Simulated scan of single mutants.
Amino acid sequence: MAARPPLDPSQPTHWILDWDGTITRRDSLDALVSIAASSKPNSPVLEEWKRVSEAYMSDYIAAMEKLAPGGKLPRTVQDEKKLLQALASVEQASLDRVSESQIFAGLTRKLLDEGAKSLIDSKKVEMRNGFAQFLKLRQSRGHDGLDLLSVNWSRHFISSCLRAAGAPVEKGAINANELGGIERDLVSNGKISPEEDAEMLIISSGDKLEHMARLRKPACESRNSSLDSSRPIVYIGDSWTDIECLLEADLGICIRDEPLGSSQRKLAERLQSLGIHCPHLHDWKKADERQVVWARNFTEIQAWMEAQQARKV
């Protein structure tokens, strides 16, 4: 792979951010399910959620035993992509189970809005340190672009959480799936589908990469992005599902806690197995040609940007 040109963070940049575990401190799917459970107290929502979760794990373990027997995982990026592509069928099967379970049937925008506010107020969904300030500064720069790219099941839920946290993002900049009916302000049928104006679900690493490629297109070709392809992309993510976007971006930033969460550890292990050096963001110039680094939160990312800009003055 040819080395990328140096990234200048003081220049117009297109930021693409994962949601669960990246903007939020923890995965929010359980929180989304809790809204459904609260809205239907006499329905077996939590039992159904446990059933589909256990079925997913069973499928995933079986698939990994078949695709990587003895835990022998890929050592090249090309083989890594093939493995992730093969695992997409596990994600699709799980999505089908969730839709068929009717866990989310009966939800409305109002219920999602109220549920999201309650979750934010109780800190069951919590934004990562520095995100609100990072977002405000990106929006104030004007020439920067920002998109969210998530495998989460409800774009409206993400939007509601951000509003409740005082960090609103234009809904058109949130690229995620949606519960059937919510886009049209109807009672949800419980099925998970693409956004109303999108062509495909976002359920896998490959899906995220394809959507990132679309966001990189010039404004005249891209549905959501306001930036042309000359703007460098910085992608921020935390899990294995983000690895292809992290590797393809002009700069990939892995979010890491101390100690590492399970998803963060999996991503760190895969990068190491692929021979990809991943220094801390402040040592970003020591990264290899893949340009992947790590940071603890958005406070660190903002401090790094300010340091780079100060050096240019």
Rank of each mutant, 00 (worst) to 15 (best):
L227K: 15
S222V: 00
R216Q: 15
E258Y: 12
S222N: 07
E199Q: 14
L247W: 12
N152G: 13
S263T: 13
G181P: 07
A198T: 08
L246S: 03
I253M: 06
L201I: 11
A176G: 11
L162R: 02
E258G: 06
I202E: 03
E170I: 00
E258R: 15
H143P: 00
C161N: 14
L215P: 01
L247M: 11
S159T: 08
G166T: 01
S159L: 06
W240K: 15
C245D: 03
L201M: 11
L186H: 15
D257E: 11
G130D: 03
A167C: 04
L215S: 04
A164S: 14
K171T: 13
D250V: 08
C161A: 14
S193Y: 10
R184T: 09
V187P: 05
S140G: 04
D207F: 14
L209I: 01
Q264H: 03
G145D: 14
S140C: 07
E248D: 14
Q264K: 05
K191S: 11
G190Y: 00
L186T: 09
A165Y: 08
I253W: 06
L186W: 10
F131D: 09
Y235V: 09
N152T: 12
E196R: 04
M212T: 09
L148Y: 05
A176P: 03
D238N: 15
P259Y: 00
F134L: 13
L179I: 00
S225A: 01
V169Y: 02
C254T: 14
S205V: 09
V169M: 02
S150Q: 11
A198N: 10
R138L: 13
I203R: 13
R138V: 15
L149Q: 09
P168A: 00
R231L: 14
E195L: 12
L251G: 06
I253E: 10
G130H: 05
D147H: 15
S154E: 02
A165C: 05
V234I: 15
F134V: 05
